[in-house]
Design a protein around this nucleic acid. Structure first.
Length: 208
DNA sequence: CGGCCGATCCACT
DNA sequence: GTGGATCGGCCGA
């Protein structure tokens, strides 16, 4: 069915995590869980800028079993458990040794809406898929998928699309839930497809 | 080894 | 608008 062109390794290994974060808007995340394939279009991201970023788990170059994932070469998933309940999905970027990552905060459900509805136990609404915990629930990802290879793996990957997000429809704000990061909590590292274009995009999906 | 708390969500008021 | 769910990572003792 879906099988588009995956983003190449070179997309992820670039050094500017903000650019990657912005460019991920409009791309397609696909998961294959026991042969059940679903997809969603990325509509919201947050950049985590490595060892100097107070909001990052790797702030201060803190290498632990958990953060080790972010230190690997870009192009793999960083998925960890938050609040004991939610798995959050991040894309590792940059070269090995530099712990940069992009948190996927929202997707627009695309293929497999029925399966997704089963997974959350209710119907998919017009604005479904907003919130990082919801993203992993719809896609059936959890922390056991940590370090999954987005280029060669077969459980989760990201594809190119023909969606062009007009630059002036992208809202750039500070990141959510990182108040503890002091001055870094104010950095404009969150990228959201604005409401007006979001509706346009959703209407296009319905026409498919 | 104990305790705290987090890149959250949902049901309920 | 608020609190409860629920648990691994991390830090300090």
């Amino acid at each position: 069915m879906i099988q588009g062109t995956r983003l190449p390794l070179s997309f992820y290994t670039r050094g500017d995590v903000l650019t990657i974060s912005r460019e991920l808007l409009g791309k397609r995340i696909v998961t294959d869980k026991d042969g059940i394939v679903v997809s969603g279009i990325i509509t919201e991201t947050e950049a985590y800028n490595g060892a100097i970023d107070k909001a990052s788990h790797a702030y201060g170059d803190r290498r632990t079993k958990r953060t080790e994932t972010m230190y690997q070469e870009g192009g793999i998933a960083y998925i960890y458990l938050c609040y004991g309940i939610h798995s959050l999905f991040n894309v590792v970027t940059n070269v090995a040794g530099l712990p940069h990552a992009v948190l996927i905060r929202a997707i627009m459900p695309e293929h497999g809406k029925e399966v997704m509805a089963d997974r959350i136990g209710r119907n998919i609404t017009d604005k479904e898929g907003q919130g990082p915990g919801k993203v992993t629930k719809l896609l059936a990802l959890n922390f056991t998928d940590d370090k999954e290879d987005l280029i060669n793996g077969n459980r989760v990957w990201i594809e190119e699309t023909n969606i062009m997000i007009p630059e002036d429809t992208i809202e750039v704000t500070s990141r959510i839930g990182v108040d503890y990061a002091q001055e870094d909590a104010l950095l404009p590292y969150r990228f959201v497809i604005g409401m007006k274009y979001y509706d346009t995009l959703r209407d296009q999906q319905k026409d498919l």
